[in-house]
Design a binder for these strands. Structure first.
Lengths: 232, 232
DNA sequence: GGGCGGCGCCAAGATCTCGTGAAGACGACG
DNA sequence: CGTCGTCTTCACGAGATCTTGGCGCCGCCC
């Protein structure tokens, strides 16, 4: 599901946005200041961000610049300041759109749709490559030794969740929640079965997993084989 | 050089835009009405379009829809009408941004820069050719073995969506959204039926699709001929 | 050492999805 | 008013996918 990060220090604004966005079937993440905004953005990888300029602490402009450092995700600025210089500054900092408060919810949603529509070709982290296989999250392709391998929808969902956070542990609960939805928190069977299928298709030696590591009792982890010390 | 199409019936506006854009080293194309706008756009392939909504003859909305039929180029709407409904309509028709007149030139230029920045990297190739057929998205022509085949509007929309992103999986939801509009997310019936019709017309062996591949549970993919698949 | 919980693996059955044909609905046009 | 092209709707068989239950293994704790 498409997720949207809302960064604003006023609870009413956040609430209004959350209600309207969730009514359109978006998943809403929230942040109250710049610091947590950057953290949540890096952590959750939303598909779009709505950023207020008047934040306490780190300014909205810094948030934009911070996100642009590692992602192309669409950023729409919300601001009470309507001066042209403010708009130019924000847009040139990397924002995709600029809406002055107060704004019409309908218009904002239309701008969100427009921004998301354009997002497709340059989603972040397009291809993940290892010595054994290559996964293209944009085109939805998986190559093993150069030949294409077919993954089922569930397998894609699992692989995507893991591969999007290289090296990091993803808990069982989190996987179940994202792939099967709420209410499946204890169906760890599913994970075992489908992970086995994934491994059978991608791992060089399925019985001795090298890339899709299981952390007993916790969850699973995608272990890339190029030891880059860059841990984000 | 980056070229920008300006569509407006008022000479002063055109002149003002031309002067300012050329000062920033853009090449400026002009059109005074919808018809010539579509013609120039197809002919010259600008990198961005600034479109006035209040045009004589074909409306600005139709210009947007017409361009969107074969190209993803960024479109920024300029309009005296500031009502929210106007904005929503234009954005949902495919525009990327909406600026109400009168506007600050600095802001407009910043929005132009923002729109160009996020332009998709893969250049639009408006005619797609395979060993079996040839599709001209501009002229709305489809040739199979050299003879023309008729595609219905829905089929054009589907083929366009798929063919514009060669090799990439296009989600069912995405297709339904773009072709039938929001609210048809679960009508996968439509896709099955119309895809079958497309295949019957374009595929050499409709029962064994080679170009319009279905990814069960997820969507469809246009698979171009792979003359050589090197490992990049 | 024995019990126990978590994991990998398997395979049958249930379920979902796709392609297909065909019939009805709808609107444009003469 | 009839015709035609197009889109919608429905039902069915075939195949892919997911679920479910069971089995054995291993490590850990009592």
């Amino acid at each position: 599901m498409t997720s949207i990060l809302v960064v604003d220090d006023e609870p009413q604004i956040r609430r209004a946005l959350r209600v309207n966005l969730e009514a359109r079937d978006f998943r809403v993440l929230e942040a109250v200041d710049g610091e947590s905004a950057l953290h949540v953005a890096a952590e959750q990888r939303p598909d779009l961000a709505l950023v207020d300029l008047g934040l306490p602490g780190i300014s909205g402009l810094d948030v934009i610049a911070g996100i642009r450092g590692w992602s192309d995700l669409p950023i729409i600025v919300l601001s009470v300041r309507g001066a042209e210089s403010d708009k130019i500054e924000a847009l040139d900092a990397g924002a995709d759109d600029y809406v002055t408060k107060p704004f019409g919810m309908g218009e904002l949603l239309a701008r969100v749709r427009a921004a998301l529509r354009r997002r497709s070709p340059d989603a972040d982290e397009p291809v993940v490559q290892t010595a054994a296989f290559e996964i293209d999250l944009v085109e939805h392709r998986a190559l093993v030794d150069g030949i294409e391998v077919h993954l089922t929808p569930t397998e894609w969902a699992l692989v995507g969740m893991l591969v999007r956070h290289p090296g990091r542990l993803v808990t069982q609960r989190h996987l179940l929640h994202e792939v099967w939805g709420p209410g499946y928190d204890h169906e760890t069977n599913y994970l075992r079965v489908h992970l086995a299928n994934v491994r059978r298709k991608l791992e060089p030696v399925p019985s001795q997993p090298r890339y899709f590591i299981t952390e007993p009792g916790m969850g699973y982890r995608f272990q890339p084989d190029a030891p880059e010390r860059d841990q984000r």
